[in-house]
């Protein structure tokens, strides 16, 4: 838009506005490459009693010739891809729409429709990915509990702790979800008539304030948890047993 002021340059900002989208693109890109490689590799995902979170629940079926990870990863992938926080992150860092506040977007097209038309209108199904990811999360908690059950009895290994922390962080990420916040109480107009849902909404709102934090640490940790199982399964390292 030309308003005669010369503000049509990329931006008049003088701070390092490009750092945040650059870091976001780097971390998300690195996670995307790592997780794709691990999901397609179809090996080194189990080291008794630890199962990689990328392969949980493990579905080994004759009718499926590809990696079993592909049968389940669509759920957490879709949950994160349609997440209100990640939308901000990747619209800024990958689509440059816009890369930062008061910085011109990659395209200043006048037919912009945002999330009101295909394909981005599909972001509205976020809650269904939340449901699917919650089912996966139940299995991850099961795996975390099983991770304390060794062949020689109940014990605690570093892997037990890693998988438990992973399940906790993913739970925090789910509990802070905007759709969850809406479904437990945000869709009400009269809170005083539903005190339980009001309290649930209050708790979800408190978690929601840290949604970005939970999004990042759970993302990084799930990759680290998988890496730990991979290194164990490949024999590069051995598990540390505390008990």
């Amino acid at each position: 838009m030309s308003n005669g002021t010369g503000q049509n340059v990329l931006t008049l900002r003088k701070d390092a506005w490009w750092v945040e989208p650059l870091i976001t693109a780097t971390v998300l890109g690195a996670f995307g490459i790592y997780s794709t490689w691990r999901a397609l590799s179809n090996e080194f995902y189990f080291s008794d009693p630890y199962l990689s979170p990328f392969y949980s629940p493990l579905i080994l079926a004759n009718w499926w010739p590809f990696s079993p990870a592909l049968l389940i990863l669509w759920a957490p992938l879709g949950f994160r891809a349609t997440c209100y926080y990640y939308r901000k992150a990747y619209y800024r860092s990958f689509f440059l729409s816009p890369p930062a506040c008061a910085v011109n977007p990659l395209r200043s097209n006048k037919d912009y429709k945002g999330e009101s038309s295909f394909p981005f209108i599909l972001q509205n199904v976020h809650r269904f990915f939340f449901y699917a990811a919650t089912i996966i999360l139940i299995f991850l908690w099961y795996d975390a509990i099983i991770a304390f059950n060794f062949r020689d009895g109940i014990g605690i290994g570093l892997g037990s702790i890693v998988l438990t922390i992973n399940a906790i962080l993913l739970t925090l990420y789910s509990l802070s979800c905007h759709s969850f916040r809406h479904l437990v109480g945000g869709n009400l107009d009269v809170f005083s008539g539903c005190p339980t849902r009001f309290r649930l909404w209050g708790a979800a709102s408190a978690f929601n304030e840290r949604h970005m934090l939970y999004a990042w640490i759970s993302l990084v940790f799930v990759a680290l948890a998988d890496l730990y199982v991979f290194l164990l399964a490949k024999g590069i390292i051995t598990d540390v047993r505390f008990i």
Binding site: R87, R92, C101, G114, E115, S116, S117
Partner: peptide
């Protein structure tokens, strides 16, 4: 639906 949640409004 046009809003793509980049949160600049909140920032400023």
């Amino acid at each position: 639906g046009y809003c793509n949640i980049t949160k600049c409004c909140t920032e400023v």
